[in-house]
Amino acid sequence: MLWFSLLVLIPLCAVVVTAAEGGWDTFWTTITNGQTAAAIRLTVTAAAVVTVVNVVVGPMIAWVLVRDRFWGKGALELLIDIPFALPTIVAGLVLLSLYGHDSPLGIDVANMPSSVYLAYLFVTLPFVVRMVQPVLEQLELDVEEAAASLGASRFTTFRRIILPSLTPAIAAGAALSFARGVSEYGSLVLLSGNLPFKTEVTSVRILSSVENNNLAGAAAVATVLLVISLLVIVLLDVLQRRVAVRD
């Protein structure tokens, strides 16, 4: 308990306290400062868009991994976990090698706002898939067959039978992937170029405040991120309870 407080609780409180020390006005001017506001807007938009993509693609990947059978599926399974385990700076470098200046595909997103989306897509890939997969595995085929035999079309079966049982898992995965997106830093350093107003995200903004020894300003922006993380954690807790009730 003591270690947990020393390591996690006290430092996080310090962030909030430092942010609050300057009073509400300072806090507000810091986060509404043009460059910071642009960074926050980009971060939240990109994380939201990527989360939506994950919500659509994640269950599809999970579906293929659970229900389909084909050669090389084991390799795909492994690929899902790579973004989670790969050091973020390496992730950035990895993406840069395919989508950077000397891209073999001819797609160059380096230093473009789209690079932020790409990096987020990469690092948040596992979350929805990994949340949905176990639920989908437990789902009984019988129920789907029953629905089909009662005359439900494939789409109806999907919408009325499969989707409702997957919803809490998808939502939990979405929350995690949003949180991860908002807080991402390492993979963007090399990829996005950190141009103010264009590709600079919130984490980078905090870091530059720290490097300029503007700890109070950094703490103010960090508080915004912390609040987002806390909201996500609370949401997750509620969702997990709902999943537990369902079981």
């Binding site: 991860r180 807080s183 984490s203 905090i206 991120l225 912390l226």
Partner: peptide, 8 residues
């Protein structure tokens, strides 16, 4: 810690 930014 899973959802807090490393920078934070």
């Amino acid at each position: 810690p899973l959802s807090v930014s490393p920078i934070v």
